[in-house]
């Protein structure tokens, strides 16, 4: 182990600041994620909140690869790799199998990307949510099929460039409102989170593990190669997505929605869109359209509250 600059300072003998998230690590270094990957940060925070009494079920997604090939694993909890369309069902089965062994407490967590959630896994997800199965379902949403090399998914924002939405206008379809679909299942707990707010994410996972029934956590997960951004921008973009109001960080308990990260004064969406290669063809009109849709969704939220 090498220190950043090799010099040991003498003036900071005792650290005054305590870690704001648990210091235990269940995700190991050495994983195969790209530089600046938010999916690894998400897993790191999730496991801090969940603890070691957790079983992960991972369908085809970036985590299939980055957890490492056999006989190694980048997580210190049991992991079952599952077919693309079947994360939720496989997780329900694991829960049943554990129950059959008399284990009522271990948390079973389906951990899927946006493709495995918005698209191919939606039927299985909806079934498990509707039956209020006792699992936690996590979607780390990097807004396209990144593991297969950046193809459009139902989670891809309008006009974003992907390999299957080439050309100057990108995808002409809006991002599917998955959260609304999940809310319509009236599950005991759902939340959104993103990596710029680790304390919030860890808290939501710790809270989710205390709740019985179906729990859903939607994570916005910036992807440097897929978004065509520099790896060091990951946390900044995650923060900007929240500060511009594009991604609302909230939780819904027993149908009641509460913002976890209030945004009293929203930054213009242009700050988030600029610098992302996937939006580089955006015209001022495109930016305006995004701004309009963000303003509208916040206005709707205000109406709901009123």
């Amino acid at each position: 182990m090498t220190e950043g600059n090799g010099r040991v300072p003498t003036d900071i003998v005792k650290r005054a600041i305590k870690p704001s998230v648990p210091s235990s690590e269940l995700m190991t270094p050495g994983h195969l994620a790209c530089q600046g990957c938010a999916a690894t940060l998400s897993m790191r925070y999730a496991l801090k909140g969940l603890g070691s009494e957790t079983v992960l079920v991972i369908p085809a997604c970036c985590w299939t690869v980055l957890a490492g090939p056999a006989p190694r694993s980048a997580v210190g909890v049991p992991l079952l790799h599952a077919p693309f369309a079947a994360a939720a069902a496989t997780a329900c089965g694991v829960k049943a199998g554990l129950r059959a062994r008399g284990d009522q407490t271990t948390q079973v967590v389906a951990w899927a990307g946006d493709g495995g959630t918005f698209d191919i896994g939606l039927q299985s997800l909806s079934g498990a949510a509707e039956r209020n199965e006792d699992i936690i379902y996590v979607c780390y949403d990097n807004e396209a099929y990144m593991n297969t090399g950046i193809q459009r998914s139902g989670g891809t924002p309008a006009h974003a460039w992907t390999m299957t939405t080439p050309g100057s206008s990108g995808s002409d379809l809006p991002k599917k409102d998955l959260d609304a679909i999940l809310r319509a299942h009236h599950i005991p707990y759902m939340a959104t989170a993103t990596v710029a707010y680790p304390e919030d994410m860890v808290r939501k996972f710790s809270k989710a593990r205390q709740i019985k029934g179906f729990r859903f956590i939607h994570i916005l997960s910036p992807c440097p190669p897929g978004w065509k951004t520099e790896p060091d921008q990951t946390v900044r973009l995650s923060r900007l997505a929240v500060q511009t109001g594009l991604f609302m960080v909230y939780e819904v308990e027993q149908g009641k929605m509460r913002l976890s990260v209030p945004v009293p004064k929203r930054k213009p969406v242009g700050e988030y869109l600029a610098g992302q290669g996937r939006f580089k063809n955006f015209t001022p009109a495109d930016v305006e359209a995004v701004q309009k849709s963000v303003d509208e969704s916040w206005a709707r939220l205000a109406d709901e509250k009123a």
Partner: peptide, 8 residues
């Protein structure tokens, strides 16, 4: 698949 991997 899940249940059998958990030993059922």
């Amino acid at each position: 698949l899940g249940a059998a991997t958990a030993g059922a």
